[in-house]
Amino acid sequence: MGYGVRLQVWGEYACFTRPEMKAERVSYDVITPSAARGVLEAIHWKPALRWVVDRIHVLNEIRFDTIRRNELESKISAGAIKSAMKGTKLMGQQVITEERQQRATMMLRKPSYLIEAHFELTSVAGETDTAEKHYNMFIRRARQGQCFHRPYLGCREFDAHFAYVEDDEVLPDSFYCDATDMDLGWMLWDMEYSREMEPLFYRPVMHQGIIEVPDLLREGVKPL
């Protein structure tokens, strides 16, 4: 196991979309491990390391809001963009007024989480890619609020705030610290890119506000 880090993440809204909902967006109850990994990678990531989420603390009460948003019915294909770049074919215009659709979104309101994670060096790590080096780089960037791109909570319009939690700092209490165990049902864990982006799912159980996240890649679990 590599060096461990603790990061508090919060925002005004979040939407971790359930893949089974096709027409309109419905969020999971809590942040997914892949979304948590995305927040960490927004602060510091290199091909030489792989972030592994160990546990997630759900700090605020799980509350939902429903809004309607304008979305596009379709998007320009990648093939049309490549043809236009090569000059072999002109790319047709996309008329926004004809493509616009109003869709409902069930999203989380004022979510807040504490992410405990560690990273492991990958096979492409070089001689200068030491665990201590990348650990110190992440700590420095997280303390100063630096990031490669603004982290977000599920959707890019829901930007995330973050703060590094020091090792000797007392962890904030969860709203569910005295609650009974809560089965959150099947949830997307992450995508397995080595198997043509197959989805991996797991069934989290929140115990007093804390979700233990397994490392399915290390455990060799096959996708559902």
Score class of each variant (00 low, 15 high):
residue 92 G to T: 01
residue 92 G to C: 02
residue 92 G to W: 00
residue 92 G to V: 00
residue 93 Q to L: 00
residue 95 V to M: 00
residue 95 V to R: 00
residue 96 I to Q: 01
residue 96 I to T: 05
residue 96 I to W: 01
residue 97 T to E: 02
residue 97 T to F: 05
residue 97 T to D: 01
residue 97 T to W: 01
residue 99 E to A: 12
residue 99 E to D: 08
residue 100 R to D: 01
residue 101 Q to G: 06
residue 101 Q to S: 10
residue 102 Q to W: 13
residue 102 Q to A: 11
residue 104 A to H: 11
residue 104 A to G: 13
residue 104 A to D: 13
residue 104 A to R: 14
residue 106 M to P: 03
residue 108 L to K: 08
residue 109 R to E: 07
residue 111 P to V: 08
residue 111 P to K: 11
residue 112 S to L: 04
residue 113 Y to N: 02
residue 115 I to Q: 02
residue 115 I to N: 04
residue 115 I to C: 06
residue 116 E to L: 00
residue 116 E to W: 02
residue 118 H to G: 07
residue 118 H to S: 03
residue 118 H to V: 01
residue 119 F to A: 02
residue 119 F to Y: 02
residue 120 E to G: 07
residue 121 L to E: 03
residue 122 T to K: 05
residue 123 S to T: 13
residue 124 V to L: 08
residue 124 V to A: 07
residue 125 A to H: 04
residue 125 A to W: 03
residue 125 A to D: 05
residue 126 G to F: 05
residue 126 G to C: 04
residue 127 E to I: 08
residue 127 E to Y: 10
residue 128 T to I: 14
residue 129 D to H: 03
residue 130 T to P: 01
residue 133 K to F: 10
residue 134 H to N: 08
residue 135 Y to D: 01
residue 135 Y to N: 07
residue 136 N to V: 06
residue 136 N to C: 11
residue 137 M to P: 05
residue 138 F to G: 07
residue 138 F to A: 04
residue 139 I to V: 15
residue 140 R to Y: 07
residue 140 R to C: 07
residue 141 R to K: 13
residue 142 A to Y: 10
residue 142 A to H: 11
residue 142 A to L: 04
residue 142 A to K: 03
residue 143 R to K: 14
residue 146 Q to S: 08
residue 148 F to Y: 14
residue 148 F to C: 13
residue 149 H to V: 10
residue 150 R to L: 07
residue 150 R to S: 09
residue 150 R to D: 02
